[in-house]
Design a protein around this nucleic acid. Structure first.
Lengths: 246, 246
DNA sequence: CGAGCACTTGATCGCTTTCAATAGCTGTGG
DNA sequence: CCACAGCTATTGAAAGCGATCAAGTGCTCG
């Protein structure tokens, strides 16, 4: 997870070139973005932005994982988004940050000062359209998560989270269609709890239960094997087809 | 709640002209939309769209209230959106509906067949930008709701919902700044439960408790008076300022 | 070796659900 | 006019699930 120096990467060579907000841009448009972008790195555990603080940039996660969280005065916190490479941070046209952004691993971000980015976006429909598309996807993810938070049991919540991570990893690593899925959890038990609206003790208990019941296998605390994806989807309470067509 | 005939309303005279997806359009652009739009009405309780069904139109709620819900096979359902006048339904670029859309009251919708709408949108940045803005607002609302679903107690959930409805009504009716807020609940106890991830019995109990404690007053089942908005915000677990600046 | 951290496991508590009965309201039909 | 069905909502009693409080384990790093 060592971050290569991203100080001089050309947009054309960027690893998230085809998924980020710039995905639809042509060479000229990329040139424009290239001219105003800059990289920033954050270490694991570091807070990128505090909710409510003024925010003078927007940007994309290039590598690593970050979380979007909301907190109540008494400390209860809820994760409202998981930021993976290519995900966009910040909202054009708003000054303050709405959520805390915290680096879960070391991360590299491709940033734009907000004003110049807004200007480029205003005259570049390719960017605006891509941002709309990404925002609609995030809205869908948020709504799917509302069902998880509102109506699923603790066991189903854990299974749902594992299924989502497994499927994401599968779509990246392009493994065989039905191969047993293996991945490392990018989240601590506490982060999982904040994602799922549970306590970390309950997360731990349900992980143990799923292991005991053979739904998952654990090597160490974080390395997970899913012997039967259909079984896991079943435990998540999801219709077991939906995931097959990707 | 009788729906006037909307069959021939010009866009310029439309009640949601300045809030809907067409808000930014100029006269020429409105003309284009006018040419391809048509109105549809649905009665209270009627299902507008079933999740998974093909959807050949998109559109805006002109009047009335509808809900966006997700359902698991065993019947558990979670509301993932509340559609008020000017809210947009459907996703350009997707064929199937992702959620059930159900009319809570009689509603009027301004519809566009998807293909023509997409074509107009592709050459009309005003529409695309407005849709982006609305989608970002919905995403914020969904994320706020994730905190409610994941971390709040039943009492806080009810108070949160009442606060949201009260504030929305206040912003529409433009009442005095600090006037005691009065409104009719647009939702049944069951719909409230589906929104909040509770059972309808718990909703009923907590409504009674809030009434007993003087946080709200009830005339009949649906007519609500909020004597002290700050108190309600407090019960919702929200920072009591946020709501004051609008 | 000991401190610190992430995680696990156990025991108990309490909130929300579940199951069940009842009340209030509206519309229908004898 | 009253009886009754159907619906929404309220209230009670009991059960269950996840939270809370509290040790204890295993690992890494000084």
């Amino acid at each position: 997870m060592n971050s290569p120096t991203f100080t001089h990467v050309k947009c054309g060579d960027c690893p998230i070139r085809h998924r980020a907000v710039c995905a639809r841009c042509n060479a000229d448009e990329l040139e424009e973005l290239d001219a105003i972008k800059y990289y920033r790195t954050y270490e694991a555990g570091q807070t990128v932005i505090w909710a409510g603080d003024p925010m003078n940039f927007v940007g994309s996660v290039v590598s690593g994982i970050a979380t979007l969280t909301q907190t109540m005065e008494d400390g209860r916190t809820q994760m409202v988004g998981l930021l993976l490479p290519s995900d966009f941070v910040g909202r054009p046209g708003r000054d303050g940050a709405a959520y805390n952004v915290v680096a879960t691993s070391d991360i590299v971000m491709c940033c734009f000062r907000k004003k110049p980015f807004e200007e480029v976006m205003a005259r570049t429909p390719h960017i605006a359209h891509r941002l709309l598309e990404m925002t609609l996807d995030e809205l869908d993810a948020a709504r799917e998560w509302m069902l998880v938070l509102g109506r699923k049991t603790a066991r189903e919540k854990i299974a749902s989270l594992l299924a989502i991570i497994a499927r994401r990893d599968a779509s990246l690593s392009q493994g065989g269609p039905q191969a047993a899925m293996i991945f490392d959890l990018p989240l601590t038990r506490e982060a999982m709890a904040d994602y799922l609206g549970l306590t970390l003790e309950t997360v731990s208990r349900q992980m143990s239960a799923l292991k005991r019941d053979g739904v998952i296998q654990l090597q160490g605390k974080r390395h997970v094997t899913i012997p039967d994806m259909v079984r896991l989807m079943d435990e998540a309470g999801d219709d077991s087809d939906g995931g097959m067509l990707m």
